[in-house]
Design a protein around this nucleic acid. Structure first.
Lengths: 336, 336
DNA sequence: TTCGCCCGTCGAAGCGCTTCGACATCGGGC
DNA sequence: GCCCGATGTCGAAGCGCTTCGACGGGCGAA
């Protein structure tokens, strides 16, 4: 193994100079640095990760905790993971993969052994048991998703309020005047899930600003509930022509229910959703939708972590702008 | 941070004794060990990973290289990854996630910096450019999948020959006397892909042993090709009642083609496949199939690596027994 | 000219752990 | 009763890197 002293000898300098030349933590003359870099190249020098971590108290490794739970969209998780790894490499860091299963003990372990410098958590729960731990870990962390109470921590996610707004604005732009939001199950709002409420706020606010008539309907995650909501919508808002769905589980049954009620999409009814692209694309009528920008979230999460590692202050909450993908389910209001 | 000297002081022994007590690399009296362990618990001691790696020249980290390429079945990859992480944790190791994108340079980097002790590669190509690198890396590695030439390396995968056999035996057991294999595209056989040829060998051998009439049909990965193969099968083997499909891309079109030709499954034709469970389950007629046992492959890969790290010799090739899942697509031969 | 300063470099002291050799103690075999 | 080999423990020497303090030389200011 070639070590720093070998490089030093070859370049005719001391080991500390080599270290400084490579880390640029102290001024080194251009000429000396050139010689050092040449020696590094010629010898194929690679600093020993363990030694570096021990000496410099930085391992240059991030922990990424991925969820396993049922109901998780695996391809989305994978996209997060890949974007995190790629972004981390861009900052000269590697990524250690932890499974949710390892739980708090796993987090504590990798943090306490200084195996990692910082952590990224995915699939954060509203009342996530790991929050107090994160606060006391003594290492920077970023959560992908928003728990109900995250003071002192850092979160990043899609801006669900803007997503709600974007859906409404899209419909308004197509001429729709009466819209409805089919939302999450009632208990989600009761628990105060941040992202669900944000959607409602965005939806309602945008509808008001655009002068649309609007209504919000929470909906259980069952096909039967979807059917009931569909019927109720038509009864209570006979002039309804635009629907926003923020409830993955009922999107398909809801579309079916509308069809069974004799409504054509988008002829009679335009539908937009906030859901994974795969779901929106796979339906009989592909649905105009806003998806979670996994790649961007991952990259930004890493960036936040790097800034925290550098001692910078970062915002507690980062919200990413939604992007709406037009598909077959939305069209201009037809004046029947 | 609590360090080994703190533990030593508390337990009233020297640091080296603590080290030996914990690693059990030298005999330590039961009583002393108890005291050391108590001190560890009371102080919440965690050995510093970097120091450990530096002192002991073992980082206790494995690298896992996951594929990104198009056409990759992401959930399957994820299942591999999770099983590798879980198995690694069972051996007190962590897992560093590398993306295929990083390429050979990434492998060299994590190996040369001693960030990892050993490597696991997924999605191995037949003539994988990384093979010579693996041989020269000076660290143990295991490949999931078989390249065409892997002397001196270690591979593990599903036993595709046995999978071919199992399909035939299942059909033979149901009374079928004339069977066909719809295989991979011709060029796959031309290139000598190990796993494709193994399936053919297993299929043919088992058919011969069972006294069945059999034929093998390579098939391009297009719906049109699937239709052509379906027609040809019926023309050339009029008495055909059993089909084995080893070509994910054409399974669905092939089933459709048979339906369009007026054959009912499994009434007229029994079909088995070697493909991911999700695909087999998702078809109109769920297909009896043999899937890649991702969890087991991952766990075994880690085990092989651990044995190599321990200096043991391990077999170059490990083949896992296939397991056939019965679904609706196979039934007894009906004597029309 | 001299003082003080900054630039560029060096030497040495760790970082926290493992491991090697040494040493003391204790039995058992002759 | 003595020697020898286990057995159990200790001290010290690294592992390869970073970093701190120091130092010499050059330069601008006084």
């Amino acid at each position: 193994m070639v070590k720093i002293t070998d490089v030093a000898r070859r370049a005719g300098v001391s080991p500390s100079t080599v270290s400084y030349a490579l880390s640029r933590k102290r001024p080194i003359s251009e000429e000396t640095r050139q010689r050092v870099e040449a020696a590094v190249r010629e010898l194929g020098y690679r600093p020993h990760a363990g030694a570096r971590a021990l000496g410099g108290s930085r391992s240059n490794v991030l922990a990424l905790v991925v969820p396993l739970r049922a109901g998780i969209d695996v391809p989305v998780v994978m996209r997060f993971a890949v974007s995190v790894v790629t972004a981390a490499r861009g900052h000269d860091h590697d990524v250690l993969l932890l499974t949710q299963e390892e739980g708090e003990e796993g987090l504590r372990r990798v943090a306490d052994t200084a195996l990692v410098d910082a952590l990224i958590l995915m699939d954060v729960q509203l009342r996530d048991p790991r929050l107090p731990l994160l606060r006391s870990l003594g290492r920077p962390s970023v959560m992908i998703g928003f728990p109900s109470e995250a003071t002192g921590l850092t979160c990043i996610d899609l801006d669900f309020r803007a997503a709600g707004e974007a859906c409404v604005e899209h419909l308004a732009g197509l001429g729709h005047r009466v819209v409805a939001l089919v939302g999450s199950p009632p208990e989600v709002y009761v628990r105060g899930t941040a992202f669900a409420q944000r959607v409602v706020q965005g939806f309602t606010g945008a509808a008001d600003r655009a002068g649309l008539a609007s209504a919000v309907h929470p909906c259980e995650a069952t096909p039967a509930a979807a059917r009931r909501v569909a019927e109720r919508l038509l009864r209570e808002q006979p002039a309804l022509t635009g629907v926003v769905v923020h409830n993955e589980a009922v999107l398909e049954p809801l579309v079916d229910a509308f069809a069974r009620l004799g409504l054509r999409v988008p002829g009679d009814l335009s539908i937009t959703a906030i859901c994974p692209d795969a779901l929106a694309e796979g339906l009989r009528v592909p649905v105009t939708s806003i998806a979670l920008p996994a790649a961007e979230v991952g990259a930004r999460a890493v960036e936040l972590l790097m800034r925290k590692l550098a001692g910078e202050e970062v915002p507690e909450a980062t919200l990413l702008p939604p992007r709406l993908t037009r598909r077959a389910s939305t069209g201009p209001r037809t004046l029947a």
